[in-house]
Nucleic acid binder design. Structure first.
Lengths: 128, 128
DNA sequence: CCGAATCCTATCTGATACTG
DNA sequence: CAGTATCAGATAGGATTCGG
């Protein structure tokens, strides 16, 4: 299947999409939550509405640029919604949509695993 | 934290690693299952041992090269194990390790979501 | 404060050909 | 069968600057 999708650069382009009818359900899920920071963003929004800078503080390794790009993709996918308050300086709030909330079990499963099996990653060979 | 890790090209390099003690548990999980095909590979191995070509047939959109690279990373991370039978032609079998099996709840959550909310992706604008 | 636009580089990834 | 080697184009992602 081919569809027009928004790239990380915010441009709509033609792109191959995994077959969503007969395709692997895990691949379908990845369509939505793949991306370096998407699941982390969703995780932080599970606790409620957050402003742009709140998210940034909670994800110090994610640049402002990447945060904005990933937020835009999540918004286009209908996972999150954005509320802009026309004050000066601007204030924006992000929150999960009803649809986004359906991802909760997935993100929570990731949280549980991360808390438990954190230390097992064998790729960490040398530390400094 | 800095550690020596294996890249997708199979080379060990120094790389920044998210703080694994105090860090976000979701980020920790992503350390292991992020990657274009990793969760899909784990998903297919949940049903049991698979050969290289079996996996390839189940993931037609993943090139042989990418499959090999992702398998190697998962192996280095201790998620899967590889058994090579010294016959001609060579036969290899991949299976989840005990550690890899702990990821089952995460992957199953993704499967459930994918089966249910598949069709909701709003990024699919045009189809042909 | 919340981004968008631009520039530039590192990394990823597909295609193709080759090997034990 | 199960990979690896190499190359080239595509994409990701940081730094910086600009604007409402």
């Amino acid at each position: 299947m081919v569809a027009y999708v928004i790239t990380r650069e915010g441009i709509y382009v033609k792109r191959h999409i995994y077959n969503c009818q007969a395709g692997c359900p895990v691949e379908s899920t990845l369509q939505i939550i793949a991306g370096k920071w998407k699941s982390v963003i969703i995780y932080h929004l599970l606790t409620g509405t957050q402003r742009f800078n709140d998210l940034q503080k909670e994800m110090p390794d994610c640049s402002r640029r990447m945060l904005a790009l990933q937020l835009k993709e999540l918004q286009v996918d209908g996972v999150i919604q954005k509320k802009v308050y026309p004050v000066i300086p601007v204030k924006t709030e992000y929150s999960l949509t009803k649809f986004g909330l359906t991802l909760k079990p997935v993100i929570l499963a990731m949280e549980v695993w991360g808390k438990t099996y954190n230390q097992r990653a064998s790729r960490q060979v040398i530390e400094n």
